[in-house]
């Protein structure tokens, strides 16, 4: 039982940590290229929050794996060992696509953290508490942007429809409860996968109704990023991210 619990905690830390790391990486690509200085700065703040959270989750995962460091996990695993959702590794596209992807992730992230703060495992509850403060703001900010662009000009509405077509096929993966999420039901009091999913749908429907976007049922079965099955994009992200530690294995930086 104890062993199973530890395995679930490790899995959870890797899913949360890898999602934060890879999404943070994508957002950091915007730095210096945003549509206006104020928003360049805003998005970098979110990237910093996410990479900060990734460090906490991966440090914890490393501890559970017998003393690996955050950098061991970030820089020395290959694609099949990463547990992030496929959605967060997809390319940024235009500002509207980045923000729609962000919103859909934030809605999930927020619902998850609200439950994870209840965990008896103090490490996990602690990271969740710290993250939740940040993600409260992320969700508010990305919701506002999705509404603003969805209900802005004709051009922006059309761009959001395109973004929806790009991103929506990836959301199913966030909503499957038959895999790792279900394990959590057993050891986090008050955690039920169903509630997370219901909360996600509620948030998304509220925002989408103001942004003039549909929320159609989606096919999701073949998206299994959290099990290490990724798109082609992740390999390129890792090639870039891990280049230095891989090229100079003896060096510390």
């Amino acid at each position: 039982m104890e062993q199973e619990k530890q395995k679930a905690a490790l899995n959870l830390s890797l899913v949360m940590g890898d999602n934060a790391l890879i999404l943070g990486h994508r957002l950091s690509e915007w730095c210096g290229h945003g549509p206006i200085l104020e928003q360049d700065i805003a998005l970098s703040n979110i990237a910093l929050d996410l990479i900060g959270q990734a460090r906490l989750w991966l440090s914890h995962a490393g501890k559970l794996q017998g003393g690996k460091s955050e950098d061991d996990l970030a820089y020395h695993r290959d694609v099949f060992d990463f547990h992030n959702f496929q959605m967060v590794e997809t390319p940024n596209g235009h500002w509207g696509k980045t923000l729609l992807r962000q919103f859909l992730y934030d809605a999930w992230h927020h619902a998850m953290l609200q439950k994870l703060v209840l965990a008896q495992d103090e490490d996990i509850a602690g990271i969740a508490r710290k993250s939740l403060k940040e993600v409260n703001y992320h969700l508010r900010w990305s919701s506002e942007w999705v509404i603003r662009l969805g209900d802005g000009t004709e051009e922006s509405a059309a761009k959001m429809q395109d973004a929806y077509a790009d991103v929506w096929p990836y959301v199913g993966e966030l909503l499957q409860k038959d895999f790792w999420l279900k394990e959590l039901d057993q050891w986090i009091p008050g955690f039920t996968a169903d509630e997370i999913l219901a909360q996600w749908w509620k948030t998304v429907r509220e925002v989408f109704s103001q942004a003039n976007l549909p929320a159609e049922p989606m096919d999701w079965l073949y998206r299994k990023g959290h099990l290490g099955h990724h798109t082609e994009h992740l390999g390129f992200i890792l090639a870039e991210m891990q280049f230095l530690p891989r090229a100079y294995p003896d060096a510390t930086w």
């Binding site: 730095c31 910093l48 990479i51 970030a74 280049f243 530690p245 060096a251 930086w253």
Partner: peptide
């Protein structure tokens, strides 16, 4: 500098560099 944010060799270096480049946006502003 933003060139190297995605290639920073450790997560500690990565957040420091991102925060620094972001500061420059603030200073421009």
């Amino acid at each position: 500098e933003a060139n190297w944010i995605t290639r920073a060799p450790s997560l500690r270096r990565k957040v420091a560099l991102l925060a620094k480049v972001q500061d420059e946006a603030g200073h421009g502003l």
